[in-house]
């Protein structure tokens, strides 16, 4: 009796999973190709350290973003749960990713783009960190090791992209894969938990037609090919930071 009920429960669960899988397969071919590119990740066994063989990066084509990137920001919010700060002032609130509106006053030409951590090759936030908490992982992902972050916020000052924010209030019910807590700095980590599982970052999944994600070190990866064909600008390229996030159409 008990076993039957468990089986029934499992069956329902598997059926629900099937629905999810079916929804995933209707994604356009363009997206699927990228999914396979990111699917190369699991060749790394999870008991092995990451190497600098790969460098993760993405190309965001803002001409194909109909909402200026708001959907990508929402997906990030949902994934990491960073909109849960009711006690903070507006300028204190977390912003792992935000939509920036740009307007040329002379011509009136305007556009919007999503701005998050640009995952620089030479990150200023890592240069200034007094404890080593602000770090670049071997595969190019820039993140905060909150275990040793003392909350001094030098990295927030140093970042030219205003990508980092500070948690001002006690939090509960964080996501199990994305720990966040009071007194530490945080920023986009390119969904490191997803990349380690071989999945695409949440924002890339939310805008499959506009964003190409992949390995910048591999000249044959989709993102490298797209960069070769389309170019792709860095924000503040004058700083020579060699960012991992590139834009087309700005």
């Amino acid at each position: 009796m008990s076993q039957n009920r468990v089986d029934e429960y499992r069956r329902k669960f598997v059926t629900a999973l099937g629905g999810v899988a079916a929804a995933a397969t209707v994604a356009p071919g363009f997206f699927l190709r990228e999914a396979q590119a990111a699917g190369e990740v699991p060749t790394r066994s999870l008991d092995q350290a990451v190497t600098s063989e790969k460098r993760w990066g993405m190309l965001i084509d803002i001409t194909k973003l109909t909402d200026g990137g708001a959907g990508m920001v929402e997906a990030c919010k949902k994934e990491h749960g960073w909109d849960n700060n009711p006690l903070s002032r507006d300028d204190q609130k977390a912003h792992w990713a935000r939509v920036v509106n740009v307007k040329d006053k002379l011509t009136g030409h305007s556009f919007s783009l999503p701005v998050m951590c640009q995952h620089c090759e030479n990150p200023p936030c890592v240069d200034v960190c007094p404890t080593g908490a602000s770090m670049k992982r071997a595969d190019g992902i820039v993140q905060v090791n909150k275990h040793i972050c003392i909350g001094c916020r030098y990295c927030m000052m140093a970042c030219p992209y205003k990508a980092r924010s500070f948690v001002h209030e006690p939090l509960t019910d964080q996501r199990s894969y994305s720990p966040r807590g009071m007194g530490t700095v945080e920023s986009c980590n390119m969904c490191i938990h997803r990349i380690d599982e071989g999945r695409l970052p949440a924002c890339v999944e939310a805008a499959p037609d506009a964003v190409i994600f992949g390995d910048l070190n591999d000249p044959n990866s989709a993102v490298s090919q797209a960069l070769k064909a389309m170019g792709g600008k860095q924000i503040r390229a004058d700083l020579n930071l060699n960012t991992g996030v590139r834009y087309h159409g700005i």
């Binding site: 350290a49 990451v50 090791n145 490191i192 380690d196």
Partner: peptide, 17 residues
């Protein structure tokens, strides 16, 4: 925690999760 943060090692045996 250090192995996971710095090296991306995500074995389950000693994971807090």
């Amino acid at each position: 925690r250090d192995a996971t943060m710095i090296e991306g090692i995500r074995t389950k045996q000693h994971s807090l999760k």
